[in-house]
Design a protein around this nucleic acid. Structure first.
Lengths: 353, 353
DNA sequence: ATGAAAGCGCTAACAA
DNA sequence: TTGTTAGCGCTTTCAT
């Protein structure tokens, strides 16, 4: 009856006080229709009197559902949390889990293997009913395994090599294409691309958009102007320097994540070059600090919060046995033009600012 | 045997394959000493063959422990996540929960009442074994209730009116005192204080440090120069404007959170005043963007990550039945001097920069 | 060293 | 409408 000095008020105790059977109490909890109003009232009275809370663990065991969602942050813990993308997606997810009374179990993993292990563990151990996966990789083995075992999951991003699955994504190719086209329209021809780790599908997609735009303008994709950096400002600083030392020097930069722009700006300023006069810059994500940079950053705004909401709604609907159509949702982004690329061309103007 | 098309591999199935009883399998899982090496081997073989994972729910039910920690973000969801403080504290917490194989259940609440309800629910429903509470209020009823019911919890911040409890905090009074003293040493005498909501104990403490410093310099605390704002840049902008319109105008600002400084900077610049020549500014938290502001912000750096770690370690130790001494830990902070206050005084120099 | 049996707190047939 | 009964998958005495 005691644990840590806390009295365990069970359904039995309530039943005893209300002079009914435990199953009747259970039915009152579930607000079952075939219970007389007076019994309901009496049972509720007893629950209130005893301060009864249903034991979720016991309920989960018999219902075979923990009513919880799992979310794993991979990459090193350090960079995962510091990226505002994470805060935004989490905000969207938790908004929905809260509405649906789902618990959200958060975990972190140092590397991909660890992430896979933890995901599998969470779901196999029945700690969670479904998973939300972020930043899928090219040929993501974890995702393939989850799919093979028919575990419920939704991916935020694009998955390759899997016909049937639930996913929420933004229009990376299109967004990247628009961003680079913006630079091309401003007259830039040597546009460096600060990409992220090539194993992520979103990096692949943004690369594809970059290539599309260049080719549309009859330009070759010159791999010398492309670098693959970590999604933080330090690596971007280093690789930004490398790119700035190329001759002929790129006149514009397209960075796959705003966080990189911080390092890139520093690199550019250290070379005594001016933004946007000497070098134009476009970022990606429209992180909250983007408008605070000097000059304010032109960047692609993606609906991160909405993607988090959509992902959570999708997986919850799936778990509720509802049909989710279409299984893959693409949310659109917009280019937010600020001061890091110089004069605006009318065709590229957006509502913003 | 089936649920969502997923085979449930139970301890029974393993027992059958290994030709032992379920209890023996259970003992192997717990690595019980009195099991022969060969049986252990055989059982482990069977577990591997069947891909067995223990059902955490079932184990929790009998062990009366979910091996999970609960964390609630109060304030409106919008501002909670966007504050880098949250990301940092979460990083520290999850680092520790991961090490100890604890699950971390995250929840959000729109307001204080909702937060209290959710905390109580999480712990009463046995979803979590203990709670980590952030940003305690003056006479925090939730905390008093949790304490009255002897629920395990740890607070990040200072709690008043409760002799025995676990808490981790930084030296707010001292930190605030140092920050204001820095401004006083630079010659400032009219120092405005952009405080946060007065119901938080940390705001109270920082106010106290502010007063201490002023009084030490023989100055009166002038309430006209103090405002209570939300912890975001919008409100800070508005109240910053108000303070700038006072005559005589304050020559320096001390803001209780770096996020406010963003709004404050905008207000100052709109008044065509220069930082630090016309107005000096000191912030609090050393958020990641603080060094990116123009001019880079002088601010108090508090060890948020370490506080998160310490909080998680404390509550886990408590749950493990260990003695935690001292129950209240205070981590120290440092003033990081950058460019928002003008010339440095030698006595205030820190290692940074 | 291992097995049998009881039961954690709850829900859900099946009766009545 | 309500009670009885049998578990959910696991751990843990108590036997052997």
């Amino acid at each position: 009856m005691e644990k840590d000095g806390i009295k365990m008020v069970t359904i039995k105790a309530v039943a005893r006080l209300a002079k009914v059977s435990p199953s009747t109490v259970s039915r009152v909890i579930a607000d079952h229709k075939s219970i007389s109003a007076e019994t309901k009232e009496r049972v509720r009275q007893a629950m209130a009197e005893l301060g009864y809370y249903p034991n979720y663990i016991a309920r989960s065991l018999i219902k075979r559902s923990s009513h919880a969602l799992g979310l794993i942050l991979s990459r090193s813990t350090e960079s995962a949390f510091s990226n505002p993308f994470f805060a935004e997606i989490l905000r969207g997810i938790s908004k929905v889990t809260q509405e649906h009374q789902y618990a959200l179990v958060l975990s972190t993993a140092e590397n991909y293997k660890d992430e896979a292990k933890q995901c599998l563990q969470m779901i196999m151990e029945r700690r969670v009913d479904g998973l939300i996966l972020l930043a899928p990789r090219v040929n993501d083995e974890l995702i393939l395994e989850l799919a093979a075992h028919k575990h419920p999951f939704v991916v935020v991003g694009r998955v390759n090599g899997l016909p049937q699955h639930y996913a929420v994504n933004n229009d990376n190719i299109q967004a990247s294409y628009s961003a680079v086209r913006h630079l091309l329209n401003l007259g830039h021809r040597r546009i460096a691309f600060l990409n992220g780790p090539a194993e992520y599908t979103f990096c692949q997609d943004r690369y594809q958009g970059y290539c599309m735009a260049l080719r549309e303008f009859g330009l070759e994709v010159d791999e010398r102007y492309i670098r693959y950096a970590q999604l933080d400002h330090k690596d971007a600083y280093k690789l930004g320097k490398e790119l700035l030392n190329l001759r002929p020097r790129p006149t514009a930069f397209f960075a796959v994540d705003d966080l990189m722009v911080i390092g890139l700006y520093r690199a550019i300023k250290e070379e005594r070059l001016n933004i946007p006069e000497d070098v134009a810059v476009v970022g990606f994500n429209d992180d909250s600090f983007a408008h605070l940079l000097d000059p304010p950053l032109t960047t692609v705004r993606i609906p991160i919060y909405e993607m988090g909401k959509a992902a959570a709604e999708t997986i919850i609907a799936v778990l509720d046995g509802k049909k989710v159509t279409p299984p893959q949702k693409i949310l659109s982004s917009e280019l937010v033009i600020r001061g890091s690329c110089g004069a605006k061309t009318p065709s590229q103007l957006t509502a913003e600012e």
